[in-house]
């Protein structure tokens, strides 16, 4: 029996990897379809409670609700103040505040 050629192994590996790439799209499609009701429920809760922001950054008031924060957040103490909350240094001034006095 002739030994397996390296190209066979490489092509089989490539086919496997392309299949895995395709599987990520299938997985994304299936999971986002399955998540539809959950997303709708989250949206309905946000609408019922009149929420304006995600509860992602809870450490300070201007990171909890970036869309509602003071005009000078994230530089809460004075403009160009050094940020001591890690989130503050990563959250950009909200779009609502840029270009407005």
């Amino acid at each position: 029996m002739s030994p397996v050629r390296p190209s066979f192994i490489a092509l089989a590996g490539l086919a496997g990897a392309v299949a895995a790439l395709g599987a990520t799209f299938v997985d994304a499609g299936l999971r986002s379809a399955a998540a539809g009701p959950g997303l709708a429920a989250r949206g309905a809760l946000a609408a019922r409670l009149e929420l304006t922001d995600l509860a992602l950054f809870t450490e300070a008031r201007y990171t909890r609700n970036p869309s509602q924060a003071d005009l000078h957040a994230a530089f809460q103490d004075h403009p160009f103040a050094f940020e001591h909350f890690p989130t503050g240094s990563l959250v950009a001034p909200a779009a609502a505040k840029r270009g407005r006095p």
Binding site: R31, S32, E59
Partner: peptide, 21 residues
């Protein structure tokens, strides 16, 4: 760690996979 910052309270959530082709 980047998302959490210093927050004690952090939502436990799994992102819905939306992929932009």
């Amino acid at each position: 760690p980047v998302l959490k910052g210093w927050a004690v309270l952090y939502p436990d959530f799994r992102l819905t996979p939306f992929v932009d082709e």
